[in-house]
Structure formats: C-alpha cells, structure tokens
Amino acid sequence: MEQEQWLYLLRSNFYDIDHDAQKLVYEAYRNLVYRDIHFLTRSHELTEDVVQETFYKVVAKAPQLRDTKHMKAWIVKVARNHAYDMFKKNKKYRHLREPQVVIDLRAPFLHPTVAEQVEDQIRNELLHEALNELSPEYRQALFMYYIEEKPYSEISQELGKTEQAVAQTMVRARKKLYRYFSRRWVDADE
C-alpha cells in the first residue's frame, strides 16, 4: 500500500473500515516503527508490546491531526515516546535477557570477501549485545544522535536537558558502548 494511502486511512474513522484495510494499515505502521523500537528495547517481545499499544493511541489521535504532512514523523515519535515512558515507569524492563548470537566458527577459513562479510556479521551481533547492556538512557541518546541524526540542540529540547548535559551523556554512552563492545570483540577473537 502506498505510504500516503495508509496515512489517509488512519485519519478516517478507522473502526469503520474493513478488516483487510485495517490489517494493511497496521502492517505499514508496524514496518515503520518496528526497528526504531527494537533498537531502544532490544527485545522483540517488548517491541511487539510497544508497537501494539501505540497503534491504539495512533488510531485514536490521528483523526484529530490537521493534515498528513508530518503524520509519519508524529507516528514514529508517539511510538518512541511510548518506549521511553515504558522504561521510565517500569524498571523491570531495564535488564533484558540477551539474544542468542550465532557465530560461524568456519569464518577464518572462508574466502576473504566472505570472511569480511562474516566479520561484519559478527561485529553487528556483538554490537547488538553491547547495546543490550547499555542503559535505556544511553541507547536513547545514541539513537537520537546517530540514527535520527539530530543535533545536540534538538536532543536537549526533546529530553528537557541542557546541551551540556546531552554532550556529557553522549560521551558516557560512547565510552560504555566501546567498553562493552571491545570486551566481546577480544573474547570472540580468542
């Protein structure tokens, strides 16, 4: 479904459209927010909860929006804020089990190009694990800066912090990520 079309459907009375159309809208919405939420929650189960809960909010509030111009950004923001709120409210979500990492032990004997690809894959897996260890606050900061590419001024506004505080959080987040990652990288190398 065209991106614009599903946004328009969200602005209509969503409960009155048929289930097939509702499903298409939900799938488009889920694909839009899933990776962002997963980056923050580091768990498919939690991501699913956030995606579902936020969808009800989006369906309820979307018809009140003036236009569809900034709707996509608004939806993404609603979903992320829900994930942030969940962390704030419930500390039990802060320590999640790590996902299983499968490392191909044949990697060193493969053709260099393939080996490079495998190395990329291993690096990504280890980075996933390192991100799992980071606190939600640091993940949020890294997400806003590196994935959303927001400047410190915008991040500080959204988080209600000073730019200096954001810069400090970023330094700490980088350091911790580097420490968690290098520990694993060395272990994987041995």
């Binding site: 889920r30 995606v51 990504n124 980075l127 590196y146 994935i147």
Partner: peptide, 19 residues
C-alpha cells in the same frame, strides 16, 4: 555506520499474530 547497520539489521518478524 555500524549503529545504522545494527538498526537495519533487525528482521521484522511475521506480523500475523500481532495483527
């Protein structure tokens, strides 16, 4: 670049049950 790779690297599971 690495973080963006990790972000995009996540496979979105089938959404049937979720729907």
């Amino acid at each position: 670049k690495w973080l963006k790779d990790v972000h995009q690297d996540v496979d979105i599971p089938d959404g049937t049950q979720s729907w």
